[in-house]
Design a protein around this nucleic acid. Structure first.
Lengths: 198, 198, 198, 198
DNA sequence: GATGAATGAGCTTTCATTCAT
DNA sequence: GATGAATGAAAGCTCATTCAT
C-alpha cells in the first residue's frame, strides 16, 4: 500500500500547500519536490505523472472524508439530521484546512477536462451519500415523494459547493461554520413539502 | 465599438468552438485563428492576449444574456414566476448552444485566479438579478422573510450551475429543458415556508 | 530628389526622436509613422525598408554636417586650427541636439553588422577630412612627419567619439563644449613632436 | 563556482563563435546550444536568459584579461612603460582571438542600453587601470601635470578601441600587433609636454 | 500619393519527465 | 530506493511589410 510509505503523504501534503500558495499553473513538480524535501525524480517513484499527484491528492483528502461521513451518517436515523451532519462535516472539514479549501474549490478546477472526469469519479462516493439521504427522506415521509433524486442531489451539492466557493473567494472573511444551520434549513425546505404562497 | 467589426465576433465564435472541442489548454491561438479564417497576428488586433479572448467571449455571451434576462424579468410581477423565467432562459440558452455550454461550465473554470475574478465581475449582473428576485419574494410574502439573501442566491445559482454542469458532464444525454420545472420547484421550496414533517 | 519632399524629412526627424526616446529595439516602424503623422504604409513610399530609414537618417544628419565642415575647414590655413574647428563643430553639433547625440552615440550602434558597414561608408567623408588635416599638418611641419596617417586619424576620431559617448552615457550632466579646448590640446600633443621626459 | 562547471565555459565559448559568425541577432539560443553540444534547456541551467550569456561572456573574457593586466602593470615602475604594456596586452589579446575581437568590437555593442550599462561596469576595472597609469605619469613628471585625467583616459581608451574596431572592420587584413608601437607613441605624445610648432 | 488592416514567419523560455550514477 | 542534471518539445506574441481601397 503506497500510502503507507512516508514520502507518499509527504508529497501529497506538499502539493496541497504549493498549489494553494502558488496556484495550479505555478505548481511545478520541482516546487512540490522541494517543499516535500525530496528530489524531483523521487516524485516519479510514487506517482505516474503530475496529473496523478492531483488525482491522488483528491482521492486521499476526499476519500478519507467520505469514509468518515458514511460512518457517521449511518448511525443517524432520520434524513434531516443526516443532512445536517453532512453539511456540518463538509463545512468544518474545509473551514479547518485553509490550503485544502483553496485547492478543492478553486485550483483543482483549473485542471483539464479529463482530470475533472477522474475527480468526478472520486466525488461519486460523496454524491452517493447524498442520494442515500434523499431516498431515506422520501421513504420516511420527511421529503416530498415526487422529488427527482438526481435533481435534489444537485441542489444539495450545488448549494453547498457554491456556498463554500463563495466563502473562499471572499478570502474566508466570515465564519463558514455559522452557515451550517441556515444552509441546512434552505436544503430541507427545498426537499420538503411546498407551501409557499399558502 | 469593436463588437461591430465582423472579425471580432468571428474570432469569438471560433474560440468557442475550438475551446469546446479541444479544451482550453489545447486551444492554441493558431488553431483559433485558423478556424476564424484569419492570420494569427490578426487575433492580436482585436484582443490583448489569449486570456483576453476568453474574458471577452464570456462578456459577450453572458453580457447579452443578462441584458435579455433583466428586460424579461422586469415585466413579470411575482417572484416565483420571475424565478421560473430565469431558470428557463438559463437552461434554454445553454441547451441551444452545445459548444457554449461546455466552455462556460467546464473550460472557463480552468482559468487562473485573476481571470476568475474578472469573470465574477460579469457574473455580478446575473447574481444581482437573483438577489432582486429573492428580495421581491420576501417583500411580497412569497418567500420566507428570514431568508439570508446571499445564501438564497448561492442556493439558486449553485443549484442551477450544478444541474447544468452535471448535464454537460453526462455529455448532454438527457434534455436539459425538461428540468426547468422540477428545478424551479426545488428552488421555490427552498425559499418558501418550511413544512417538512408537517 | 526625395529629400525635397516634405514627408521625407518628417519621417527622418520622427525616427531620431522615437529612437532616442525608446531605444533602437523599441523603435517600431508604426511608432515612427505615428510620430511623423503619416500612415505606416507611407513610410515605404519613401524608404525601401526599416534599415533604409536608419541609413538615410545618418546620411542626412552626418552628410550635411560634413559638408559644412569641409567648407569651413578649407578656409583655415594651418592644421592645428583646422583641427580645433573640427572638434568645435562636432561637439557643438551634438551638444545642441539632444536626441541626435543619443541616436548616433548609443542607439545606432545596436544595428547589425551590415548596417554598420553602411554607416561607415557615410563616415568616410568625415574621416577624409581628418586625414586631410593630418597631412596638412605633416606637410607644414606642425605635426611629426613620421605619423601614420591612419593611426593619427583613429586617435583623433576615437578620442572625439569616446569623449562624446562618455558625455551621453553620463546623461549629459556636464557641458560638452567646455571640452573642446582640452581635447584639442590632447590631440595636438599626440600629433606633435614628442618631448615627454624632456 | 559556476565557471568551474565544464558546460558553463562550453556554452560561453560556443556563444563567442556563433555570435561572431552570425551576428548577435542571428545567434539564436538553439544555435548556441547546438554548437556547445547541449540541449536548448541546458543553457537556462547556467544562464538567466539570452542577454545573460552575453554579459557573462564579457565578464569572463574581459574579467580575466583585466586581472592579468593589473598584475603585470603593477610590476612596471614608470607610466610610459605601463602604457606600453597595456596597449600590447590589449592588442595581443584580441589579435589572437579572431572571434572574440568581432564579438567585443562589433556585436556586443548591439545590446540595449541596460546591457551596455552592465558592460560598462566590467569596463570600469579596465578604465581604472588607465586612470592609474595617467596619475602615475603626472606624478613622476612623465606627463603634463595639467592633464584632465578623465579626458586623458578617454583619449587612450578611444584611440585603442577605435584602432581595434577599424582593424576588425577591415577584416583584420593587416597585423594589429604592428600598431602597438606607433599607437603607444601617439598616446605618449598626447599626454606629454606640448611642443608642436616648436 | 496615402492609408491602415491584415499578414505570418520567427524565437525565447518553461517544465514535465528521464536515466546514469 | 534516491538523486538532480539534462533534455527538447511546444506556443504565445511581435512587428516589418504588403496591398486593396
Amino acid at each position: 500500500m503506497k500510502r503507507n510509505k512516508p514520502k507518499y503523504m509527504q508529497i501529497i501534503d506538499a502539493a496541497v500547500i504549493v498549489i494553494a500558495e502558488n496556484g495550479y499553473h505555478q505548481a511545478q513538480v520541482s516546487k512540490i519536490a522541494k517543499t516535500a524535501g525530496v528530489a524531483d525524480g523521487t516524485i516519479y517513484l510514487y506517482f505516474k505523472n503530475k496529473e496523478d499527484i492531483l488525482v491522488s491528492l483528491f482521492e486521499e483528502k476526499m476519500g478519507s472524508f467520505v469514509e468518515r461521513l458514511e460512518t457517521e451518517i449511518t448511525e443517524i436515523p432520520n434524513a434531516a439530521d443526516k443532512l445536517y451532519r453532512l453539511v456540518k462535516l463538509h463545512f468544518e472539514n474545509l473551514a479547518s484546512d485553509y490550503h485544502l479549501a483553496i485547492v478543492t474549490q478553486l485550483e483543482l478546477r483549473q485542471s483539464n477536462k479529463e482530470l475533472r472526469y477522474r475527480i468526478n469519479d472520486v466525488l461519486k462516493g460523496y454524491l452517493g451519500v447524498i442520494d442515500h439521504i434523499v431516498k431515506t427522506g422520501m421513504t420516511s415521509g420527511e421529503f416530498r415523494t415526487d422529488l427527482d433524486v438526481r435533481l435534489a442531489r444537485q441542489m444539495i451539492f450545488g448549494t453547498i459547493d457554491e456556498t463554500i466557493t463563495s466563502w473562499v473567494m471572499n478570502e474566508q472573511k466570515y465564519n463558514l461554520t455559522h452557515l451550517i444551520e441556515p444552509v441546512h434549513q434552505l436544503l430541507i425546505n427545498g426537499c420538503g413539502y411546498s407551501h409557499s404562497k399558502q
